[in-house]
């Protein structure tokens, strides 16, 4: 059995669920959906070969409310600054030491961080991610470290497979 097979099956199933969400459930469209999901899975395995990281469901569910709450805070912060009679921004750059090398995990972290309150990744090197911040007085580095740890629990490295 090829090591890619379990990944392919999981991704194929996810694409089929996405297909059903688009079109609803019916036999004839499900046949077309299987073709579409097969094509999508093939492209996905080519573009994103299965790596050592596995998504863990339980921490993902735990991360979700935290992410939603952070989104709310982020939107609120923007609204607060936007409607303030005088601009209260204290923008600046902060270099964050990432625990992960450049790659998928770090990109996922950067993408999530771009939706968090007051942070926007705008550059990186081997060890650091450079963040642009709306308010440099906030404890940004601690927040980011918390976020990265929470994400690392979801996308855990598993030596096997």
């Amino acid at each position: 059995m090829s090591p890619a097979l379990p990944t392919a099956l999981v991704r194929g199933a996810l694409f089929l669920v996405f297909w059903s969400a688009l079109i609803g459930l019916s036999v004839s469209s499900l046949i077309v959906g299987i073709v579409a999901a097969a094509g999508a899975t093939r492209a996905s395995l080519y573009l994103l070969p299965p790596g050592p990281q596995r998504v863990r469901l339980l921490p993902l569910v735990a991360l979700l409310p935290r992410f939603l709450w952070q989104s709310l805070l982020a939107g609120w912060e923007v609204a607060r600054h936007a409607f303030a009679p005088r601009l209260t921004l204290r923008p600046g750059f902060v270099a964050y030491q990432s625990a992960h090398p450049p790659g998928r995990l770090r990109n996922t972290f950067a993408t999530i961080a771009s939706l968090l309150p007051g942070t926007l990744p705008c550059g990186e090197n081997e060890r650091e991610i450079l963040f642009h911040c709306l308010d440099v007085d906030q404890p940004i580095l601690e927040q980011l470290a918390d976020e990265e740890r929470a994400l690392a629990r979801v996308l855990a490295d598993s030596g096997d497979v």
Binding site: R11, F15, F18, W19, L22, I23, V32, G33, V35, A36, A37, G39, A40, T41, A43, S44, L47
Partner: peptide, 10 residues
Amino acid sequence: PPIGIVVAVY
């Protein structure tokens, strides 16, 4: 792109 393929077939 994989998501785009599913949407295109849809």
